[in-house]
Amino acid sequence: MIVKTIFSGFGGQGVLMMGLSLAHSAMNSGYHVTYLPAYGAEVRGGTANCTVAIADEEIASPVASEPDYLVAMNSPSLFTFQNKLSAGGTIFLNSSIVEDRPNRLDVKVCAIPCGDIAQELGNSRVANIIMMGIFIKKTNIVPAEMYLKNLELIMGSKKKTVAEVNRKAFAAGFDYVSDN
């Protein structure tokens, strides 16, 4: 099994943190992983994306030809990557700011207003973690508790309240959708 995911959005939305936390959780679940950030002169408001590969065997290429999942936190991400996605793959959309929908019929679409849910929770910065709740629920790549533990690990010494905010945000996303 090998699963490749592209996380993409504006710089500042936390898309690299989404990929990194997933990669970390998968590594500690015993998988082979690669985490490939698209680095550049990007700053807050620019574009950012990363590719995470998770496999139960050695990963040949960290570059994804046809990713299985695309997490698009903004519209440019959808336009850039929708045609790369493999047939039968899933696109996760932050529908709070992405009004467009994929023009492909052979992929599943999971459109969730992560930005709005984050506002309701009173913290617009946790939209990415809400999306991770949805992503983990739908893909089931790693157990939810495993993900949360690793998220706390990489957030490191930051205040304990941050962990709680993240847990709440993750649960909000996780419970928003049904698994299938």
Partner: peptide, 10 residues
């Protein structure tokens, strides 16, 4: 190269 420098692996 830049990819090796930026990429993360266990």
């Amino acid at each position: 190269d830049g990819m090796m420098g930026q990429m993360m692996e266990p």
